[in-house]
């Protein structure tokens, strides 16, 4: 479990990193927190000829508030978000997701941009990005562009990033008043990858009807999935137990998860439905103020 030979590059600015990626193309990979890449390299499952380490690029490590939410630099550690009152107040779903990402030792190293760019199907941050309709700020040889979260995750471990592009920041919009959120998952142990998980947000209008519902499942397919058909069942209506059951059934109807050593496909599908039901109930309780 020793990596194959590679050249190590430590750029100091984003532009330099992009240039290195452009120069080495497919033979280069980006190192951020290293929580996924380094084990893969040690197993020689990943054999980049060049590793471009972003940890020495200070301009990527920040957390700021702008008018519509928060902006997180790509190499900001997950632990920073977990400890941030700003994140808790402005982006509670993001804040709630953090303790589910590995263990604190992992979050001390793991980065927000790295988690999105790695695009593990079972990881929490991509699903949160979908629910919050985050925008991923990307920089590459031809300049900068923003990619909507819904367009970012293409397949398992595959994103809309071009080989010479890196994630520069992520913009997480705040949700309007009257919104409640929840993120639930089932994992073999605390901190393990989810066998199934769901991130949810519900917004109620002054009459108590659901004006907006967003549900994203993770760990049950190659990418996190927004289940829009289930959201539509909730939107415009008063949320009842029956309606929640209907939405949960709809959410898992088209799922085709796979089996592995941790759980069968049937289990994943079934438990995803349970989690959707529980997450809607929890988000609703927060939207109405019954639960904090």
């Amino acid at each position: 479990m020793k990596p194959a030979v590679f050249d190590y590059h430590a750029p100091a600015i984003v532009q330099e990193a992009v240039e290195l990626l452009q120069r080495y193309g497919e033979d280069a990979t980006v190192l951020a927190g290293g929580q996924s890449l380094v084990p893969l390299m040690n197993l020689r499952l990943s054999r980049p000829g060049h590793v471009v380490d972003l940890n020495g690029v200070p301009e990527l490590d920040y957390l700021t508030v702008d008018g519509e939410g928060i902006v997180v630099g790509a190499t900001t550690r997950q632990r920073t978000l977990e400890r941030s009152d700003t994140v808790r107040d402005l982006c509670p779903l993001l804040w709630r997701a953090m303790p589910l990402v590995g263990h604190f030792q992992v979050r001390n190293r793991g980065t927000v941009g790295g988690s999105l760019a790695h695009a593990d199907p079972a990881s929490e941050l991509p699903a949160v990005a979908l629910v919050l309709q985050a925008e991923v700020g990307v920089v590459g040889p031809t300049g900068r562009r923003d990619v909507k979260a819904e367009d970012f995750f293409i397949d398992a471990y595959t994103t809309a990033l071009d080989s010479a592009e890196i994630v520069e920041h992520v913009r997480f919009p705040s949700l309007p008043g009257g919104t409640g959120t929840a993120i639930l998952e089932v994992a073999r142990r605390e901190g393990d990858f989810a066998m199934a998980g769901v991130a949810a947000s519900l917004t109620l209008d002054p009459e108590g009807l659901c004006s907006s519902a967003r549900l994203a499942l993770f760990g049950v397919g190659p990418t996190p999935v927004r289940v829009i058909k289930a959201e539509r069942i909730l939107e415009g209506r008063a949320i009842t137990e029956e309606l929640v059951g209907e939405a949960a059934a709809m959410a898992v109807q088209d799922l085709d998860p796979s089996s592995d050593v941790h759980a069968s496909a049937a289990y994943r599908k079934r438990v995803a439905g349970v989690l959707v039901r529980r997450a809607i109930a929890e988000a609703l309780a927060r939207a109405t103020g019954e639960q904090t």
Binding site: M195, H262, Y267, K269
Partner: peptide
């Protein structure tokens, strides 16, 4: 006693 085996044992999937 994995979660999927327990669900199966209770008559779930």
């Amino acid at each position: 006693l994995k979660p999927d085996r327990l669900i199966e044992a209770t008559g779930g999937d």
